[in-house]
Write a protein that binds this DNA or RNA. Sequence first.
DNA 1: GAAAACTGTGTCCAGCGGACACTGTTTGCT
DNA 2: AGCAAACAGTGTCCGCTGGACACAGTTTTC
Lengths: 236, 236
Amino acid sequence: MSEAANDTVRLLWGPPAKPTRGPKPALTLERIAAAGVEVADAEGLGAVSMQRVAGLLDFTKMSLYRYVPGKAELIALMVESAVDEPPRPADGADWREQLSAWAVHLAATFARHPWLLDATVGPRVVGPKELTWLERVVAALDGHGLTGPERMDAAVLLAGHVRGIAEQSRAAGPAGSPEAELLTVLDTVVRRHADRYPAVAAAMADPGGRDQALDFGLERILDGLAALIERRTRQT
Amino acid sequence: MSEAANDTVRLLWGPPAKPTRGPKPALTLERIAAAGVEVADAEGLGAVSMQRVAGLLDFTKMSLYRYVPGKAELIALMVESAVDEPPRPADGADWREQLSAWAVHLAATFARHPWLLDATVGPRVVGPKELTWLERVVAALDGHGLTGPERMDAAVLLAGHVRGIAEQSRAAGPAGSPEAELLTVLDTVVRRHADRYPAVAAAMADPGGRDQALDFGLERILDGLAALIERRTRQT
DNA sequence: GAAAACTGTGTCCAGCGGACACTGTTTGCT
DNA sequence: AGCAAACAGTGTCCGCTGGACACAGTTTTC
């Protein structure tokens, strides 16, 4: 195993501390992660630098390296710190209700910490809380005739959808924000080139709330899963 | 409209050139974008810097700023340059076949240029080719009883799935790569904490190819859309 | 009491995106 | 024909980044 991956695993999964000899550390991984989250929440992941985080804690940036091997690991800790515990399945909830609640809760997490979208692109080591999300969705699908890989694929499908929606709703942003402006830019561009993009232009001209995207995709996915499950259980 | 957004729109959508008075430019936006793509293909988006791209063209980095206002715009050009034209719908293909081909082709694009995943996170201005992808998917769903917003939501749903799959298959990576190692790390972690993640552990222990993820999600989504379309058309 | 182990600091470096002043070239206008 | 405006590419400079390293101060163990 590579050094970096090993370090990250130890940080995320390893024992919380070990008594040592020298002076007592003035900081904790939790405080450092929280400071990073604070910066990212306020100004985005791009504003997170060692300097910035250390300054928020009234320390020098190099002192952070006593706790964290590098910036990548810091961000991994921030992710693990910002991610919620997934919702516990309600008593008597069937798989569909469980997955629906799961998706809504995950979308809320992304809404609370939009930088999670940036922090979770690319291959990386996942932490315990993040893995618990996967556990819940796979568990909800247990015993309905799906194979192991199929249950994992279903999880990827759901997570991908929530991610896509979160990305889209971040692109909307609060009114007056630079993000919101991009929507009017898109609108202008599409209207100006309506001949090249007639279907998009027509679809965008249609009235109707645009805030149903999460539910829309969710219902389609769940319908598709239900069809498969019904086929499998009937066949057995 | 903000300056930055305006500049990007002009670069991506504006007229290709305008005759001027001074010396003739030695470079073109196309060559610059191609150089950027070359670097990103070889070493990832992180390796793309003004210095690097300029060096590949045997120019100084500052000369690039004569063509491109900043790095963000360079990356926008790279995206537009790397993205394929979406497949033209085959004659007589129904909506389901069209969307299926669309998704497979998009996944192939991500596989060819994995850095596109990094370059397309966050709010940004989309280019003509990128918008053509949206056009195709919305057009394929025309005339099946879906509202405009629903057609757009379906597009987001499909794109989100393909993205999720591309992310996952990048995390796998070629054998021996640092990415592939992360899979064994995940495997180890899950096995070591099998008591906390029994469902995931069981699902991962199940045999079976893991390369069906794209098709699996795609079929579920298309089944879900088919159910909605059938409901709508029957009702009319 | 001495040595070992550890924390936090200061200094240094290469690389980044970008501002700006500058030289040299090409063009259109008078 | 000549000149001035407009433009291309270069070199220098700045602030910031992540990180290496040596060092001083503190605490524990032998």
